[in-house]
């Protein structure tokens, strides 16, 4: 099942399927390792509800929900 990364709850995980968006944001996501096939796990949400923190390729990455909207993740049911 496909799910947008911004809708993830802490603890959920999946494999990145597509990365949308354009320009600098998209390239930045690629450079940080958010590429199709990368396993990603949602860690937590910041105290004020945004941004979020995910574990990816062995490190912690933070991004805003607005940016996480571009990341489509395949989750197993």
């Amino acid at each position: 099942m496909e799910k947008v990364l911004r809708d993830f709850k802490p603890g959920e995980s999946g494999v990145v399927k597509r990365v949308g968006g354009d320009g600098a944001v998209r390239r930045r996501l690629f450079d940080m390792g958010v590429t199709p096939g990368a396993p990603v796990k949602m860690r937590k949400v910041a105290p004020l509800g945004d941004p979020i923190e995910v574990t990816l390729r062995g490190y912690e990455l933070t991004l805003r929900k607005g940016e996480a909207e571009n990341v489509i993740v395949e989750i197993s049911e």
């Binding site: 600098a24 944001v25 930045r28 996501l29 940080m32 941004p51 923190e53 490190y59 912690e60 990455l61 933070t62 991004l63 805003r64 940016e67």
Partner: peptide
């Protein structure tokens, strides 16, 4: 954009 590493 706010896409950054949270270092250990």
């Amino acid at each position: 954009p706010f896409i950054m590493e949270l270092p250990a």
